[in-house]
């Protein structure tokens, strides 16, 4: 009976602290007013505590023919777009990237011109490079 109550309490705690089951998803959307092929220069804004994701994003965008610079300072005024991102990491035996959202923005207004998101839980985890590739490819798939 005591075991049963312990298990019950544990399950109650899990049910109260977690937000639901997990799935995989990959999406991309582009604003109808945006023309991604016209964006030739971009600045990837590095977030604090990021070691490598920003370089992976920059490299992937270069493969799309974009001239890319990056850094943690404010974007220079002469770029066509600023790229921001949010990466979420999770631990399951090893650390892995759970979710990545990349947004391409108008440098003057901060307006999100295009966004991509990938979410992969542990069993279908992807490497950070694969996550970046999936998100950027999904963004360009939706472009004019």
């Amino acid at each position: 009976m005591q075991k049963f109550l312990k298990l019950l309490a544990l399950l109650g705690l899990v049910a109260s602290l977690t937000t639901g089951c997990a799935v995989n998803r990959a999406t991309g959307s582009v604003d109808p007013s945006a023309n991604l092929s016209a964006l030739k220069t971009m600045y990837v804004k590095k977030i604090a505590d990021d070691d490598n994701t920003y370089t992976l994003i920059a490299d992937k965008l270069r493969s799309k023919g974009v001239t890319v610079t990056s850094g943690s300072e404010a974007a220079p005024g002469n770029v066509d777009a600023v790229v921001t991102y949010i990466d979420k990491w999770m631990w399951d035996i090893t650390m892995y990237m759970l979710e990545l959202t990349i947004t391409i923005r108008d440098p003057k207004t901060d307006f999100p011109l295009a966004t991509g998101n990938s979410f992969h839980t542990s069993l279908t985890r992807l490497s950070p490079k694969e996550m970046v590739n999936e998100v950027v490819d999904n963004i360009y798939k939706g472009a004019k």
């Binding site: 049963f4 298990l7 019950l8 399950l11 109650g12 899990v14 049910a15 109260s16 977690t18 937000t19 639901g20 089951c21």
Partner: peptide, 17 residues
């Protein structure tokens, strides 16, 4: 039976979204 009951309770409490 208790395990099934607990699982059912957990699904009711947490369930899916």
């Amino acid at each position: 039976t208790p395990l099934l009951a607990i699982a059912a309770l957990a699904l009711t409490l947490g369930g899916c979204a």
